[in-house]
Simulated assay, not measured.
Amino acid sequence: MTTAIHPFRSISAYNLLTVDAHGTLVSVARQDRLLVSSAVESILRTKLHTPLLLYRGDSKKHLRKQLFIDPGTQNPDGQMYAKLFYFGQKARHFWMEKDRDIHQREWLKGVWDHSDTTFAWLFKEIRRVLKYSYRRVKRFCDENPALSEYFNDESNGTDFIAQVMQESPKKRQIIRDYYLHLLHTYGRNGIHKATLLVSASSDLRVASSFRKDGAENVVLYMFSPAPYTKYCVSSRFRPKDIGVVMDAGLPLYKRNSGIYPGQKEYGFRGAIFPHLIFGVYDQATDDFIVNPHLLAMNGHSMENLYRNGIRVEQNQFENMIKKTGFHRFVIVDESGLYHGQDKGQE
């Protein structure tokens, strides 16, 4: 019987590239190839607090647009990867939503928003989605009778808000994103531009087939340290991994259920932060572009990679992001609380 090789272990078999200080794609040196293999093993061999290993299918065309790369610039792909590994990949809220649209509403005004108004809107939107007669929605409701009954009863809206508002701001944000994930996974029928989540999958095959841009298709390889809810939400979590919601007395998704359960989807909260991106696989060229910040670690603190992620020097982050087309950005403090800031704020 043949044992399948883990996708992360297959990285070393690809043509390894990285990005230099000038935003140029260059080959990974032999000694650094060993470092990459060592980093993979430090993640995979961890028995305690095992990180989530996730993948996101995308395209260079889409990434260049999201990262505001001028098509006429020299070496656009190298510049794109340099920005991706410095800024990460952000939810649509940060690069698609205009300020005027946010100012015109009272709910979900930012990644920081854990207000009662936002939870009132969230309850109403989940109730709206669960009333759809589509087969996928009906199957989800059948698999989640307690959750479906709770949100279909309009009188529970007051209880929902009251239960949530008893929790700390950090826990409220996790609960918000846990339920927002249901809307997010339903696409435009749920939530689109205003979403605070970025989709990923635990299944490489799903991620590899997500985009249909031919030679432009790429797959991001990522890892999310425990506790998982610091960076991710999903119906695929075990109850103990989403204890914040359970402790608040609110209904949980049945594990692995969803409107599109085959997607095996996780939602990164706010952004896929650069210190969680191991690298990017180019499906057309068989190149794997390694996060240059991983190589810059020179093997130091590899034993803590699974817990802390890649060390990315970002002293100039706020100055540099103000030179991009992002409308706003997100910061997570040491306690795990999410803060959002408009580019123009000081």
Rank of each mutant, 00 (worst) to 15 (best):
Y55N: 05
F119K: 06
G23E: 15
S42E: 10
L63W: 06
A29N: 12
G57I: 14
K65S: 10
E106D: 10
G23D: 09
S59L: 14
W95T: 01
R64F: 11
L108Q: 05
S27P: 11
E97Y: 00
S59E: 07
Q79V: 03
L48G: 03
F123H: 15
P76S: 08
A91V: 02
D32G: 09
K61F: 07
L34W: 06
T50E: 07
I69W: 03
W121V: 05
T24H: 03
T117C: 09
L63G: 01
W112I: 00
R92W: 01
R100H: 08
D116N: 08
G72F: 07
L25W: 15
F94E: 01
L34H: 10
M80G: 02
A21E: 13
K61M: 06
P51T: 14
D32N: 14
P71S: 11
T73L: 15
G23C: 08
P76W: 12
D58C: 12
L67K: 03
T73M: 02
R64Y: 08
V40T: 08
R45M: 11
L52F: 13
V36M: 07
L35A: 10
R56D: 00
E106T: 05
R92A: 00
R30T: 12
L25I: 12
S115P: 04
Q74P: 13
R45E: 07
F87H: 00
D99Y: 04
Q74L: 11
L53G: 13
R45T: 05
W107I: 04
S38R: 15
N75F: 14
G88Y: 03
G23S: 03
L67Q: 06
L44V: 12
G110S: 15
D101K: 01
H49M: 11
E97H: 00
G110F: 01
Q104V: 10
F94R: 00
K109W: 06
R100P: 03
L53P: 15
W107M: 06
T50K: 15
Q79A: 09
H103I: 13
F85I: 09
K90S: 02
L63K: 12
Q89N: 05
L84V: 09
Q66G: 04
T46I: 12
W95V: 01
K83V: 13
F119L: 08
K60L: 10
Q79C: 09
R100K: 01
R100G: 10
F68W: 10
Y55I: 15
W95M: 04
T117L: 11
H93F: 00
Q66T: 14
L25D: 15
Y81D: 11
K98G: 00
D70R: 06
L35S: 11
R33G: 06
N75H: 03
K90M: 02
I69E: 12
Q66C: 07
K65T: 04
W112D: 00
Q66V: 02
F68S: 04
D70E: 10
L67D: 03
L44K: 07
H114Q: 05
K109Y: 05
S27C: 09
I69Y: 05
K109Q: 07
L44I: 11
W95L: 04
A120K: 14
R56Y: 01
H62D: 07
Y86R: 14
D32E: 08
P51R: 10
L34A: 14
T73K: 08
F119I: 15
